[in-house]
Amino acid sequence: MKSKDWLRRLVCALMVVSLLFWSAPPQAVWAAWVETESVLNPSAADSARARLEIFLARQDVQAALQTHGIDPREACSRAASLSDGEILRVADRIPEMPAGGSALGVVIGAGLVVFIVLLVTDILGFTHVFPFVTHRR
């Protein structure tokens, strides 16, 4: 039993180490690399992106996303393909950003408010309510 434990720990440790290297994109290997975005906008290195990533990685947030039918991995990859400028804007405007739905839609839905409240209280300090559409057909 004891030797099995030891083996399991070793395998675990090896996997963690290999994952660390495997998942790192080339730029992340060197901290001293200049991203294209920093060239366009060197002052806005403030990372709303990092905050958003940390936010999306949290377990309670992921659970909330899933409750509302959003795949957390999908949420992350959507976030990753936005520029910093857009991330900042998303952070500023999520509460008032409309989701286009159907022309037959009406506004209801307390569930979403929970999600927004989560956003509000937990990370970005939002102050409005998200307009959204739900369907009654």
Partner: peptide, 9 residues
């Protein structure tokens, strides 16, 4: 799905 719509971003 929860929004029954698509956000601009």
């Amino acid at each position: 799905p929860a929004l029954k719509g698509s956000l601009q971003p």
